[in-house]
Design a binder for these strands. Structure first.
Lengths: 245, 245
DNA sequence: CCGACGCTTCGGCCTGCGCCGAAACGTGGT
DNA sequence: ACCACGTTTCGGCGCAGGCCGAAGCGTCGG
């Protein structure tokens, strides 16, 4: 049986709680050291070492030795895609503890996805940029069946001249020094709606961090600071009323 | 740990060879009886029954009792999406037997994906319809990062008037009686290129089956019959030279 | 050069679960 | 009514693999 492609071994690799936690943590795109991941997963370093070895063998992650640390990262974006596809079908589990509940809530609220913002903040920011006239939506149907957005719901975002002006005033760099496209988007797994990626997505997060509007917390969680709480609605029209804490 | 969404349990469900085989078999979109699936997976009916129960509990498949048979089908298209995402990252295994090799080859050659054609035949058909002037490609960039097609590679296919004419001559129904869109496409996991879906995709497969050009074989494999071998290149410009057997 | 530290390897324990065959249950055909 | 058949349940076997602590190895800092 399954002579085609071995879905089973890959799925099995992802199907163990500690390993899944590791992979999900690495979804942020950053590399992480073994010990960090061990505490993350809540198992002994020796146990995690075994898991990491298996993940490397399976081609899901790669290692990179630096001094006495060994940094692990996802082997390819496709792995992240697969994890998100899995997350999309995964039933939302009954929450088992308050810590988990608040963390689950926090990560839905605002998190980093590779190098840009995701979660409710990510999609609201994207919406705000559109409703504020900084971005324009070209909603043409592209003929593709999108599992998340539905049939033919593909969008395209373009920067308006007033958007370029406003963002330049905020010192957000708008000219990618590389071939990376200025504006892209990903479909957010918790919101099932698009958030900005591409050069602009990365530049916005970097700038927000610089300005102290947001900061990185544990895991992929992003926290909105008091400064951002007042500046964001003001400058970009993002309503943060839904952000407690 | 993983308080967010339980990727692990879903992945674990898919991570067992027999279950993965079952799920992959159900990817065709058709419902299948327990015994069929048991022989498919190569385990005893009693063993498979346990697996099926777990898959139902996990929400990956649904049952439907009819007489003394029980038919199982994928619970949602998202499940199929997840499986395909997994298949995309799965390494192509060293082939273990000749039977498997030929089946693996056959399934890459031509298979059904829900109700339309996929595999090499599916994408070649799609290409042929374009190069034969029956379909036209609107290659506008939609701004979305597509994991398979690459950045902004979204396409859109439109039926030309000569296409409408040719297909009508073949008695392919072109007016969806439902709200289902006429032309859609999916990204083929074995070819990493688009094949037609939507009403037209389904209508084409149905018509090809009626005409005896192709027929369904075991699993999702589709066989091209002698009739089709001569008719397809003739009527649609599909070169079938690569199809042995 | 020595100790602290990060990480992996090894040995041993133990649970989970995949597997089967036998038996039970329900449906359909005769 | 009976039997055949599709399917599930149960009991028991055996192995894969998750977990830990201890020990080993390499790297950095003083």
């Amino acid at each position: 049986m399954q002579g085609d492609v071995d879905v089973a071994t890959v799925a099995a690799l992802m199907g163990e709680p500690a390993r899944a936690t590791v992979l999900l943590a690495l979804t942020s795109g950053r590399a992480m050291a073994a010990t960090t991941l061990a505490t993350e997963a809540g198992v002994a370093p020796s146990t995690l070492s075994g898991h990491l070895g298996r993940l490397v063998d399976g081609g899901l992650i790669t290692v990179e030795t630096s001094g006495r640390h060994r940094y692990y990262r996802l082997a390819s974006p496709e792995i992240a895609e697969a994890l998100e596809a899995l997350a999309r079908v995964a039933p939302t589990r009954p929450v088992r503890s308050l810590r988990q509940a608040t963390h689950a809530e926090a990560i839905r609220r605002a998190r980093s996805c590779y190098d840009h913002l995701a979660g409710r903040l990510g999609v609201e920011l994207c919406d705000a940029l559109v409703s504020g006239g900084l971005l324009q939506v070209d909603g043409s149907d592209n003929g593709r069946d999108d599992p998340v957005l539905g049939a033919g719901r593909a969008k395209r975002f373009v920067l308006t001249s007033s958007g370029r002006e406003t963002l330049t005033r905020l010192d957000v760099p708008l000219d990618p020094p590389t071939r990376r496209p200025l504006i892209r988007y990903c479909v957010d797994w918790s919101e099932q709606r698009p958030h900005l990626s591409g050069w602009l997505g990365a530049a916005l997060l970097a700038r927000f961090l610089d300005l102290g509007w947001v900061s990185r917390a544990e895991r992929r969680v992003v926290r909105v600071n008091p400064a951002g709480r007042s500046a964001l609605p003001d400058q970009l029209g993002v309503d943060l009323g839904w952000l407690p804490d």
